[in-house]
Computed example of a mutant assay.
Amino acid sequence: MKTTVSANSFAKIILFGEHSVVYGHPAIALPLYSVNVTATIIPAESGQWIRSRYFDGQIAQLGENLLGIKRLIAWILTDLNQTSSSFTIQIESKIPAERGMGSSAATAVAITRALYKYFDKTITRDTLLQIANVEEQVTHGNPSGIDTATVSSEYPIWFVKHQENEQIAFNLTSDYLVIADSGIKGKTSEAVNLIADNLITDANEMQPLIDDLGKIALQGKTALQQADSKLVGHLMTTSHHHLQQLGVSTPTLDKFVDLAIANGAYGAKLTGSGMGGCMIALVDSNKQAHELASVLQDAGATSTWIQSFKNYGHTTGDSDDNIS
């Protein structure tokens, strides 16, 4: 008799490289350990079921909005020769959907890890990313891969599309990141298409912004290595101004950025595709992080999270010991 198993993944935020990563420039992304997804596989007498905040019923009856998850599960069961097995997948997620925090990718990674563990099969990280992208290709069309790479990682990553992602030296360990949800759903496809169109119609103005976002990621990598908080903050704010010019910020995100800087943050920016979603700000202490979170909540943030940088560069202890 099979026993119940669980597996986790994390939310993600992009520190540097939004949109420019689509065009071959590097990006730096961070997993958020306290904002996670857990997929639990429970033996069932018959049928294949899923329980989540979006759907509770038979996997075969998943609707169009969860087509990526449906295809992912079908792909895995076919690969493992388990299409007739009976089980229930229970998904518990702390990640808000459509906020640029990798909700769909994190769900896909957690489900993949859990199913392979349930059927006693090992899976390499490269294979994990390839399989999880089955869902992302349905949900997002042509994803860069940065979401799956980050939500499955225990470390900050340096990401270049179609190249191997790698852990980076992260010595900025005394600071804190404050994440604020604007309460507005991000519009990934719309934002990506807007920039693509603008690069055609107004290349002279838009292309330098994309190229400079790539250069900022390179500078950010060095600043993180050298623990230069002020430079990291400056680069974050500069990135936000570039993203404003590219047309993917919103008045709410701009307000949050201004409030963060006015309240002593080293820097702040939108994170993810924009047109909604979240803002991130870099501060120098736990006390300041909580004070800023309170200010942002008073200003309309629907949720806030605080991530200590001291955890980065140290393993969080992956309980999924079948991941090699």
Rank of each mutant, 00 (worst) to 15 (best):
G220T: 12
S52C: 02
M1N: 12
H290K: 03
D79E: 14
V178Q: 13
L296F: 12
D79P: 01
E205Y: 01
D318C: 11
Q244F: 06
G247T: 13
R125S: 07
L32I: 15
S46A: 09
A27L: 01
A11I: 05
N322V: 12
A293P: 06
M1H: 05
L62K: 08
Q163C: 05
H240W: 12
A223D: 02
H240A: 13
A44R: 11
I42T: 15
S308Q: 13
A132C: 04
T302W: 02
L128A: 02
H242W: 00
L66F: 05
I89N: 02
L177D: 01
A39E: 07
P156V: 09
W75C: 12
L235C: 07
N204D: 14
S285V: 05
E136P: 08
A262P: 08
Y312M: 13
T127G: 04
N65Q: 13
A203Y: 11
E64A: 14
L243K: 05
N165V: 08
G100S: 03
I195A: 04
G233V: 08
L253C: 08
E136D: 06
D318I: 09
I306Y: 02
Y312G: 09
Q90P: 04
K310S: 15
E64S: 05
T237M: 01
S52N: 02
A301V: 06
V295G: 03
R99A: 04
I216L: 11
A60P: 02
K221S: 04
A108W: 01
A27V: 00
A180W: 01
D197I: 04
M1S: 15
N322E: 00
N165H: 15
T122W: 12
S229D: 09
Q225A: 13
N133K: 13
I42K: 14
S152Y: 06
H240M: 13
Q219C: 10
T40A: 07
Q61F: 02
V151D: 02
A149T: 07
L282Y: 10
L115G: 03
D79R: 14
D284R: 02
T38C: 08
T3E: 08
C278Y: 03
N165P: 10
D202I: 05
G186H: 01
S104F: 07
R53C: 07
L213V: 14
N8C: 09
V248W: 00
S324H: 10
H19S: 10
Q90S: 14
D126V: 09
D202F: 11
N171I: 01
